[in-house]
């Protein structure tokens, strides 16, 4: 598979999750393990641009896929605008849920850009979804934060994607 643009090869135990492959085998500990049960979202990464819970993904199932982790969000010009926005809006305290929130938000913005509706979307047939605060709050509810940085997280995502859904995804 490719991870953050680089080809990686690893012989893995068939029981190994994508999360443990990233953290233990590849040393990419930016992706976090919060529950290992798919309940907290801390392990969210992008697989071919879609957000997935890497703790519920077996590594062997992702052969040939393109995985992006928090370490791969930054571009050649420095951090991703969303990463900067999280700092500007104090969208974290301890920082443990932050990588999952960042990857999830990038994937979420792409979903909105494709017009995928959510529970709070009024017009289910619209081509595009405007990411207002309620849309962001609903779509990010799979990522838990215990420090209580919710306001800052939503503000950071809104600031980043206010120009138009998915434009920076």
């Amino acid at each position: 598979m490719r991870v953050n643009g680089a080809e990686v090869e690893a012989a893995v135990d068939p029981r190994t999750s994508l999360l443990d492959l990233l953290r233990e085998t590849l040393g990419l500990s930016g992706t976090k393990k919060g529950c290992d049960q798919g309940a907290c979202g801390a392990c969210t990464v992008l697989a071919d641009g879609e957000r997935i819970l890497s703790c519920l993904a077996l590594a062997v199932q992702y052969a040939g896929r393109e995985i992006t982790t928090v370490e791969g969000l930054a571009g050649p010009d420095g951090p991703h605008p969303l990463q900067r926005a999280f700092i500007d809006h104090d969208g974290f305290q301890c920082g443990y849920c932050t990588p999952g929130h960042l990857c999830s938000a990038v994937g979420m913005a792409a979903e909105a850009a494709r017009g995928v509706p959510s529970y709070v979307t009024a017009d289910l047939t619209a081509d595009r979804v405007v990411l207002d605060r309620d849309e962001i709050r609903e779509r990010m509810s799979g990522n838990l934060c215990r420090c209580g940085a919710h306001n800052g997280i939503v503000a950071a995502i809104a600031a980043t994607y206010a120009a138009g859904p998915g434009e920076r995804a």
Binding site: G27, S29, I87, P99
Partner: peptide, 21 residues
């Protein structure tokens, strides 16, 4: 003042207790 360790946290560079090998 913004958090001193902010950039390290949003780029996944902070190492927590289970991340030392």
């Amino acid at each position: 003042m913004p958090r001193l360790e902010g950039l390290a946290k949003v780029t996944g560079r902070i190492k927590f207790a289970a991340e030392h090998a």
